[in-house]
Simulated scan of single mutants.
Amino acid sequence: MSSGDLGRDTDNPRRPGATPAGPGPTLPDAVRRGRGRRPAQQVRTDILDAAGRLLLAEGMAAFTIERVAAIAGTSKMTIYKWWPSKGALALEGYASKVDDMLAVPDTGDIEADLTTQLLTYVRLLRDTPAGRVVAELIGEAQTDPELVKAFRRVYADPRRAVGRAALQTAQRRGQVRADVNLDTLMEQLWGACLYRLMARADLLTDDFARDLVRNVMGGVRCDRS
């Protein structure tokens, strides 16, 4: 992409050699484009929105670059400028839809805050299409190395940063022991939810989330006997 392309939508369906986006999807509705070219950042935002909506509506089986392009009102060529594979786009589209839901609150009580966050996470995995999508993305990652990289960069690392910040604050407040390995602690909490999603989704309950936080905090809090 040239420097002149960065500030505008580089798609032009009439341009010779452009890859057609394919038939329009039934779900969700395609973006309605006005006259003129969209800024590149708006195109990217529209693509992520289309990817996230399609993924949560129909899952990975129905997720194709062609359908995302049709919904976003862009071309496959433009999508491949930013995402190297279908899986990488799907993962970033998913993250764009769920990130705000997975923030860790700060009430001053780390056990209560972790319980609130884990309940939100468990309900997202159990009660919405997001759980199926996560399972499908994990499966897709086994044969898509670009998706593995994207999972770490777009989803796992940012989620770890949020969790680590909350736990470091709890350490400074004297609620979590200073010698606790926070990476291991995060794996015990959120990793357990993913394991149960994949192995025993029927047991991914609210009580499981509450018990998980209670059990883990019983081993790491400063005031344990």
Rank of each mutant, 00 (worst) to 15 (best):
V68R: 09
A69W: 06
A70V: 03
I71D: 02
A72I: 03
T74G: 04
S75L: 07
K76H: 15
T78E: 11
Y80R: 14
K81R: 13
W82H: 14
W82T: 12
W83I: 07
P84W: 05
S85K: 06
K86A: 09
L89Q: 01
L89M: 04
A90E: 00
L91C: 09
L91G: 00
L91D: 06
G93F: 12
K97G: 06
K97N: 05
K97E: 04
V98R: 01
V98S: 05
D99H: 11
D100N: 11
D100W: 10
M101K: 15
L102S: 07
L102K: 04
A103M: 11
V104P: 08
V104G: 02
P105K: 12
P105W: 13
D106T: 04
T107L: 14
G108V: 02
G108E: 09
D109L: 04
D109P: 03
D109R: 07
I110E: 01
I110T: 01
E111I: 08
E111D: 13
L114K: 09
T115Y: 14
T116R: 10
L119R: 13
L119G: 10
Y121Q: 14
Y121C: 12
Y121W: 15
V122P: 05
R123A: 13
L124R: 10
L124G: 05
L124Y: 01
L125W: 06
D127A: 08
T128G: 01
A130L: 00
G131P: 02
G131Y: 02
R132V: 06
R132G: 12
R132K: 10
V133T: 00
V134K: 02
A135L: 09
E136D: 07
E140H: 12
E140S: 13
T143A: 13
